[in-house]
């Protein structure tokens, strides 16, 4: 057996896939459990001064305290819930708008398809964060809901373009013509053939969008346009730690690690799920 054979052996690929999937499940589950836990319990009251200012990590405060003496671990735990809420909300809105628009464009006449494609390209040309900032600025006050809506709208253009490209590719296949000659309606073709065939790629994209949304929410909060206080968003924690980054670096490192671990976890989970739900990628 050559080295290349060994690398591509299905059993090895399968075991790597399951490692990826399990690493993703563990990281995301950790955030979900912590996020849900904060609904009923936190180590300290998130807005109470539980200790001295900028305390180093200790048995009483595992990640230390911020400049107002609030427990950092409590705030990071709540940040997990906010990041998940924003990620899920923004991706759900982006997917609902984006997939619908993308499918409409794929099935539309050439004129409508071209018009939709041009509109999507223009929207995508604007950075996600800029669109989100515009939407938040258009609403009177920045709230968690406005941040979710803003990010959802910004992400929908990316999802729509991807959906359109993937759906158009599927619509060219002979099995779509066979479905038409079998009497399947266009709606039936969408649900039985198009969506199942584009879903693996879309799910990976949703995971990437989730990561983008979590990062964008942190950026919006960092700029003061995200979840307002007392919501302990990771972005706001990073912004607050900016002034004390040299004296108490844990204040910047901890929310950063939390954000990165969630984004990596979601990506690994999506990768693993794609491999497990795609029958052609399963080991034979």
């Amino acid at each position: 057996m050559t080295a290349i054979d060994q690398i591509t052996t299905p059993a090895r690929r399968r075991s790597w896939q399951s490692v990826t999937l399990w690493a993703g499940i563990i990281l995301v589950s950790l955030h979900v459990i912590v996020g849900l836990l904060t609904l009923v319990w936190t180590p300290y009251d998130p807005s109470a001064m539980a200790g001295g200012r900028l305390e180093a990590p200790s048995w009483l405060h595992w990640v230390g305290t911020d400049r107002l003496g609030r427990d950092f671990l409590t705030q990071i735990m709540i940040g997990s819930r906010i990041a998940l809420t924003v990620g899920i909300g923004a991706v759900a809105i982006g997917a609902a708008i984006g997939v619908t628009l993308g499918l409409l464009a794929a099935f539309a006449s050439k004129f409508l398809d071209d018009a939709l494609a041009a509109a999507l390209d223009i929207l995508i040309a604007f950075p996600t964060l800029l669109i989100a900032m515009l939407v938040v600025a258009a609403s009177e006050t920045a709230t968690l809901g406005s941040a979710i809506l803003a990010l959802g709208i910004a992400l929908s253009a990316i999802v729509a373009r991807l959906t359109r490209i993937l759906a158009k590719r599927v619509l060219l296949m002979d099995y779509i013509t066979a479905a038409r000659t079998s009497g399947t309606s266009w709606l039936g073709i969408v649900f039985s053939h198009v969506l199942p065939n584009i879903w693996p790629t879309l799910s990976v994209s949703f995971a990437l969008q989730f990561g983008l949304a979590a990062i964008a929410e942190a950026s919006l909060s960092y700029l003061g346009l995200g979840a307002p206080p007392p919501n302990a968003s990771w972005g706001r924690l990073l912004q607050e730690a900016q002034g004390t980054v040299y004296t108490a670096p844990i204040g910047a490192i901890a929310p950063g690690i939390a954000l990165v671990s969630l984004v990596i976890g979601i990506n690994l989970l999506a990768d693993g799920l794609r491999d497990s739900i795609d029958p052609t990628r399963r080991a034979r």
Partner: peptide, 21 residues
């Protein structure tokens, strides 16, 4: 290779005209 939906099992593929019609 392109006339059978790779995501459907043989039963779903062959039964499609029966369901749709």
């Amino acid at each position: 290779y392109s006339s059978l939906d790779p995501r459907q099992k043989v039963f779903a593929i062959v039964a499609e005209p029966l369901r749709s019609l």
